[in-house]
């Protein structure tokens, strides 16, 4: 404890040690908005008019990210399970799936899924629309599933082999060991990287604007083009950055907390 205090004092004697840097950043952010509000009161009023439009855009980002992580998780756990199989003909394709989607640029995948799927699906005589935002979601979900498969495989392999030996000695089969002994111990190892991935996906949802999905970035572009004033444009993008920060930062923070908590067990 003593050394910790010393280094703190050595590093930054001018910082009051009980104030966390996060709080300082938040204060700075609020202050920046306060100053902006004074200087560009007019633009801020304009911005407020656009809030419903931007909120609708943000809704799309949240919807896409939640769906993408959902699909990605289900698919990723499946692929991860296949990757863990001992049969070569099962784990090799799974491994290739992971490699292909982990090494593909996200934007290219989103373009790809947008153009490879039809705009509507015909089931019997019913035509179901297949909107672009769902295609973009799939584009995000595919690499997410590859990452989740890797996270799962890594977690399973990080459980010490004596756990397998002990289970085998108690007459557990391989799949029983995986289900009852290994996977329950993996949950806490998987949770932090999974949340990290979710934050990354959320931020990547803005890429969907490039294939014409009306999400937050696209809404901001609309607003900026309509108003057509430099100070307003800056303000709108600053607002978007603030919104994403407000949504993703707590997730990152919670992830760090969980990582610390679990590292002791």
């Amino acid at each position: 404890m003593a050394t910790e205090n010393n280094t703190l004092i050595l590093k930054a004697p001018w910082v009051f040690p009980t104030v966390s840097p996060v709080a300082l950043w938040l204060v700075a952010l609020v202050a920046a908005w306060a100053v902006l509000g004074q200087l560009y009161a007019d633009s801020i009023r304009l911005l407020l008019l656009w809030v419903p439009h931007l909120a609708k855009g943000l809704q799309m980002n949240i919807l896409t990210s939640v769906l993408a992580i959902g699909i990605g998780t289900v698919l990723g756990l499946l692929v991860g399970a296949l990757e863990l199989s001992q049969a070569r003909w099962i784990n090799t394709p799974a491994r290739w799936y992971v490699q292909v989607f982990r090494n593909a640029p996200l934007l290219v995948l989103i373009f790809f899924t947008t153009y490879v799927f039809p705009f509507e699906i015909k089931i019997g005589s019913i035509y179901l629309p297949f909107p672009d935002w769902i295609k973009a979601t799939i584009g995000l979900a595919l690499p997410a599933s590859a990452h989740i498969a890797e996270i799962l495989r890594g977690a399973v392999q990080s459980i010490p082999t004596p756990q397998w030996e002990a289970s085998a000695s108690l007459a557990f089969s391989r799949s029983q060991t995986l289900r009852w002994i290994i996977l329950p111990q993996c949950v806490k190892r998987v949770l932090p990287p999974w949340m990290n991935l979710y934050a990354m996906i959320t931020m990547s949802t803005t890429l969907a604007s490039l294939v014409g999905v009306t999400e937050l970035l696209e809404s901001a572009k609309n607003a900026s083009n309509t108003v057509n004033r430099t100070d307003f444009t800056i303000l709108v993008y600053l607002a978007i950055l603030t919104l994403f920060f407000a949504y993703c930062y707590p997730i990152t923070r919670l992830t760090r907390r969980l990582e610390k908590k679990f590292s002791f067990h």
């Binding site: 004596p162 756990q163 030996e165 002990a166 111990q185 067990h265």
Partner: peptide, 8 residues
């Protein structure tokens, strides 16, 4: 086992 290997 030497290292007990209980399920934590």
């Amino acid at each position: 086992f030497q290292q007990y290997n209980l399920f934590p």
